[in-house]
Design a binder for these strands. Structure first.
Lengths: 210, 210, 210, 210
DNA sequence: AATGAATGAGCCTTCATTCAT
DNA sequence: AATGAATGAAGGCTCATTCAT
């Protein structure tokens, strides 16, 4: 029933053509290693040499691909954030003008699917939310998901399909609930399977329904 | 309508007797400064000299009060976690055997009140959840809130006052929603006033009601 | 056969009269603790707080009795050096104009006795020989033993009772041999009993005899 | 008459091929500087930045070549100890089954020659004997010289070529005498020339001869 | 492009010393 | 005299970054 629109990590897809294979791989390996380590130890708790070691390259090499550590997190942040937004929007685009119930379900499924399939990406985005080392470009993406939610909600509230509370509050509650579920799964208290995701979705629908 | 059982930070309560005022104040100043800075920059992003400067003391002084930086975060974590638990339990103790609706409201109000009155404490606990530098004693406190929630839920589910989904899922969703609201307030998207807390509470009651 | 002119450590002898007991005891306790610790860890490897702790007093108290750490080592050095010189000279004074064989034996017994009875003092003096933190007054005492030896030797060489090699060489060899024996005992390779001291004395007599 | 089997310090021997010259030189420069400074100020009295400055490198660089300060002393200790043992054994290997007189002379000459040619190495080994920061591997080498001496002595005592006193005592006395001579030379009381070494050797032969 | 030795600023911590009590 | 909290200068070590190869 799930639509695993988001492929499991790492989606790097071995290039069939070996053209410029090394550079691409190196860059990817760095981002991959950084994702792991930033999730485990945070930005300040992860050193560039550590990233290099995990990526299987020399420390200096990182500076051929990124201007520095800060540029690296920002690149990672933007890539992952865009991936999450793409997954979400992909789900929505398929159903313009659908009723709230359907829209909500779709959104929930997409986001939960993303969290299940790319848990490190989800954790990374959550952990680095509003961090001081994110630059302007990254910050511009920060609340995009909330804003998307708000934009979707307004017309549905007008139609009384959703509760008449401030849109931002509704979105915060729902995204917060989703995050709570994912975190519980990450810590081993839940399994993020279809049954759980579905049950959670039904609960949260009650939260928002008009 | 709110019961601000939790006093605004810092609740240090000037000692009536000025005897040995310095040591207590110094320790408190360190914890205070550390709370601020750990919330702003995280554990690894905050240096001991920074904490000392903010506390208005010399760097070496911190080591007269704490064994090291790690002992400092752990002390802070435990103190704040206990304060939050105390606030929560205090609210519950007043109403043994109350119906789910009342219990839920109480719990929500207490937690939201704590988050509103001591935003840094709430943010600190959220940020340092399951961090690698927390020791065994701190980790023992980590999921106490979730466990408390689960313990409360089971009997109420049996009475069909709450939805028949796994207790841990229900708790994760609700605590997640609360956290989402608080975070949105922290980022300026909402104001954490009584009206907002109340509206959110009514929404989330729908989430859990049977 | 041994003349234990030097009492075993610590010779502090609980004073029967309690007159000014504390100050004297405190000073003595500091010197005692410092002797232990300097032998174990060296000057730079021993901290003032460590000394205070071992002496059972507060760190600040040390500065009421000594100007600083350096003054403390120097005081200790001079006291112990004088004690060793006193023991040595005491032995010699009893026999003016004795034959070389007797003189040598006396000297050896006294020094070995001192090393056996006050091993920490001997080790301390050996370890801190010509150290950079010893001041002029201490350095003035440094080679006093060697000089004493040289002064004794010259007339005996003239009488052909001792080997006609440079006095300083002879003294260095003998004192070095003694030190070698004591060190071996300290490390558990020997026992510094009368038999060993005696046997060593006879060997070293051959070294010096004319 | 002396066999300067041990080359004067530093024996690093400019590499004929300049390939990768830097790393080797850096490591050597660190060891060289550390040898100097440890002899002058002891282990705890010498700081890593001091070593770096004397070696003409940045402080951080030391950690690319050694795990830490302790690893550095241990490496130094082992290298120098092995060098001394090699010099000693080299002298002995040339004369299997020689009479005691010859063996003794050879041993003495080799050790005195080492002390004369590499005074800092000799002083370093003497100063760091049985220090608490030496690890198990270093400690295993500590008493090797004494043990070698004991092994040589036993058969010669059986043939009554040496005095019938405990082997360890005899060795301690002789090595101690040698050390005494070297120390006197270091302090300017003697010159460590062939005449002095020879005279001392003849004296000490009397000490050991049967 | 990649390497990895080198750098030097900065981090956590300890220490000798001072001083109000 | 004694205390012990406070200080701030180092100390050992790590890290982001550079650059010659």
């Amino acid at each position: 029933m799930q639509t695993p629109a988001t492929p499991p990590e790492p989606p790097q897809g071995h290039p069939i053509d070996a053209r410029r294979e090394r550079p691409r791989d190196t860059r990817e390996a760095i981002l991959e290693a950084a994702l792991d380590l930033f999730v485990e130890g945070g930005y300040h708790g992860t050193s560039v040499p550590q990233i290099a070691e995990r990526a299987g390259i020399a420390a200096g090499t990182i500076y051929r691909h990124f201007e520095g550590k800060e540029a690296l997190v920002n690149t990672l942040y933007r890539e992952q954030k865009r991936a999450m937004m793409a997954a979400t929007l992909g789900g929505l685009a398929a159903t313009p003008g659908a009723p709230a119930r359907v829209l909500f379900r779709r959104l929930w499924q997409e986001l939960a699917g993303f969290a299940r399939d790319r848990p490190r990406a989800f954790a990374f985005l959550e952990l680095h939310h509003h961090a001081s080392y994110l630059d302007a470009a990254s910050q511009a993406l920060e609340d995009q998901l909330t804003e998307l939610g708000c934009a979707l909600i307004a017309p549905l509230q007008a139609k009384e399909e959703l509760k008449p509370v401030p849109a931002k509050l509704l979105v915060s509650l729902v995204l917060g609930a989703l995050t709570g579920m994912v975190r519980a799964a990450r810590e081993g208290h839940l399994t993020l399977d279809d049954a759980t995701i579905d049950a959670a979705e039904r609960c949260c629908w009650e939260l928002v329904r008009g």
